[in-house]
Nucleic acid binder design. Structure first.
Length: 393
DNA sequence: TCTGGGGTCCTAGGACCC
DNA sequence: TCTGGGGTCCTAGGACCC
């Protein structure tokens, strides 16, 4: 018996990737940045790293995630921009809107990346390549920002295609040519294979995705466990993960690395307070509450730990967040110098906040206070209203 | 040159329940 | 008195991505 299911239809998937997104936005805001080496990120004096860099900077070996001090050494004429992250979100929304006019199925994978399901849109937009060309032009028209596009029969192959054709280009991988397209690529081109997995693979003689696809599965499982088969399927360009609108967040977090390591308990506690405020405020904005509170701390030798606790009821109250985070941190901290602290809420529950008619007046007051505080912060930034116990400035 | 901040997903052990 | 197997939740760590 053969049953038709939508999954069995030949899919057409596009992956849009904005070209050095942060730098491109900064160049729109300040055209003097055009044509010169630019990096967006933290200060080279402190512990900043490169978040995004222009192709002119890449010529000197500058890469994202590189310490800014090193980037400046490699490229002394580098112009460093600290980054206007709320502006990036605005442009990301514009990109999303534009893409939504091409398909009802658009999934933002990050601020500067999206998957679009074009299956069944041929009558509207024509063949895959012409649809892609129209999308690229539409994004450029709406945002003045360049992007690259990969088009294939699934998300995996589309993503690899867009990464290989940047900047400002298109690459179409026709149905049936996925495996041959992947075969000669180095293993670290496969999304999910990072530094560690690539090293492990190299050690067993696997250099290319073709090598990986034909490697003995049992021997591979020795290093990658249950993931071995999946890894090999992906190495052949096989992937059936769906494109999903409005994927709910799994976590809300805030963290900060200090300019100098600290052993000052009062300072560390006040930092936790600021982080808890930030996380609670964002949860309330997004109408979610967290069942599990996580505190993250990193020692000066980069040793990183997390400690978490699941509450009996989900919360978006910064007092509860703060008390939990402080208790978790102080029960584990061994007084060695700390370089990073973070607070997160996970196990999120999404729910329109409607006050229970039976809610006691005190709860109601707290609710109104929170909303008012959030509104003020929305207008003037987090610094405008602080809890009595939060003393960072 | 020591390594940001926001996330996602996976694994593995132990508790606990049926 | 000893011994099951399966499922789910919690916790901690790690790899990876933009």
């Amino acid at each position: 018996m053969s049953v038709y299911t939508p999954e069995q239809r030949q899919r057409i998937v596009a992956h849009v990737d904005m070209d050095c997104f942060y730098v491109s936005v900064e160049r729109l805001l300040n055209p003097k940045l055009n044509g010169i080496p630019v990096a967006v990120g933290g200060s080279p004096d402190g512990r900043g790293v490169v978040a995004s860099c222009s192709y002119e900077a890449r010529k000197f070996g500058v890469r994202s995630a590189m310490p800014m001090a090193k980037a400046l050494q490699l490229c002394p004429k580098l112009t460093i921009v600290s980054g206007s992250f709320s502006r990036y979100s605005e442009f990301s929304r514009k990109v999303h809107e534009t893409l939504c006019s091409f398909s009802p199925l658009v999934q933002m994978a990050s601020q500067d990346e999206a998957y679009i399901d074009l299956t069944g849109t041929e009558r509207l937009w024509g063949a895959p390549l012409s649809a892609a060309q129209m999308m690229r032009e539409a994004v450029l028209k709406a945002t003045q920002l360049p992007c690259s596009l990969g088009i294939a029969t699934n998300k995996l192959v589309a993503k690899v295609a867009s990464s290989l054709c940047k900047p400002a280009a298109l690459l179409y991988i026709p149905p049936g040519s996925e495996a041959s397209f992947f075969r000669r690529l180095p293993v670290d081109h496969l999304p999910g294979v990072g530094v560690k997995s690539a090293r492990t693979l190299r050690e067993i003689g696997v250099e290319t995705l073709g090598d990986l696809a034909s490697f003995d599965t049992k021997r591979l499982a020795h290093h990658f466990g249950d993931q071995a088969e999946n890894l090999q399927a992906r190495a052949r360009g096989e992937n059936n993960s769906p494109i999903v609108n409005d994927v709910p967040a799994r976590q809300v977090s805030a963290e900060t690395t200090f300019d100098r390591d600290s052993v000052d308990r009062d300072f560390l506690f006040s930092v936790l307070s600021g982080l808890a405020e930030k996380v609670a405020s964002r949860m309330r904005r997004d109408d979610c509450r967290a069942s599990t509170i996580v505190v993250k701390y990193r020692y000066n030798n980069f040793e990183t730990h997390t400690a978490s606790m699941t509450l009996s009821e989900p919360t978006d109250d910064e007092g509860t967040l703060l008390d939990t985070a402080r208790a978790l941190f102080s029960s584990r901290w061994n007084n060695r110098p700390i370089r990073l602290l973070g607070v997160a809420g996970t196990n999120l529950v999404f729910e329109r906040r409607q006050l229970d008619i039976l809610a006691i007046p005190a709860e109601e007051r707290k609710e109104k206070l929170h909303k008012a505080v959030d509104a003020l912060r929305g207008k003037h930034g987090y610094g405008i209203v602080k809890r009595g116990s939060s003393a960072i400035d």
